[in-house]
Simulated scan of single mutants.
Amino acid sequence: MSHLVTIAPAQLSFAVHEGETILQAALRCGIDFPNRCRQGVCTSCVCKLKSGEVRYDDPQPLTELDKQQQFTYCCLAYPCTDLVLHHPFIRG
């Protein structure tokens, strides 16, 4: 099973396969997705979750402030549904 992820405002869409993080799928699809550490530390891949639901393996990387801000750490996040994310620096 896969889920469709759309990145706004670029309106780029790609499929994320089971067991694949959002970042892994974006890079597999050739999308120039900002990333560095791939461990949830540098925050370059963080998007705002506009719609949908994601899950993380333990330990949960999000702080309470991250959750309030609807931040999604794409290097660690697995989609549970189709998603719309916002990242201002990703271009189509």
Rank of each mutant, 00 (worst) to 15 (best):
A8L: 15
R36V: 07
K50Y: 06
H87V: 00
A15V: 10
V41Y: 12
I7T: 04
K48F: 01
R28S: 11
D58C: 01
C29Q: 15
L85C: 04
P34F: 04
D66S: 11
L62M: 10
F33C: 04
Q69M: 15
P59W: 02
A10S: 15
S51D: 14
C45I: 03
K48C: 01
L65K: 15
L12W: 01
V16A: 04
T72D: 07
P79V: 12
H3K: 14
C42T: 12
G40K: 14
C47A: 12
D32P: 01
Q24Y: 00
D32G: 03
C75G: 03
A26C: 04
E53C: 10
V54Q: 07
G52Y: 09
G30Q: 07
H3M: 05
R91M: 11
L85R: 00
C37Q: 05
L65M: 13
H17K: 13
L27F: 02
K50P: 01
P79I: 12
H86P: 00
D82Q: 07
A26G: 05
A10F: 01
T72M: 06
D66T: 12
V16Q: 02
F33Q: 02
E20C: 06
L27D: 00
R91Y: 13
T43K: 13
V5G: 02
A25Y: 07
A15K: 10
R38M: 07
E53N: 08
K50C: 14
L85G: 05
E20T: 04
K50A: 14
K67W: 02
C80P: 04
G40L: 12
I31M: 06
T63W: 08
C75P: 01
A15E: 15
R38F: 00
C80N: 12
T81K: 08
Q70T: 06
Q68W: 06
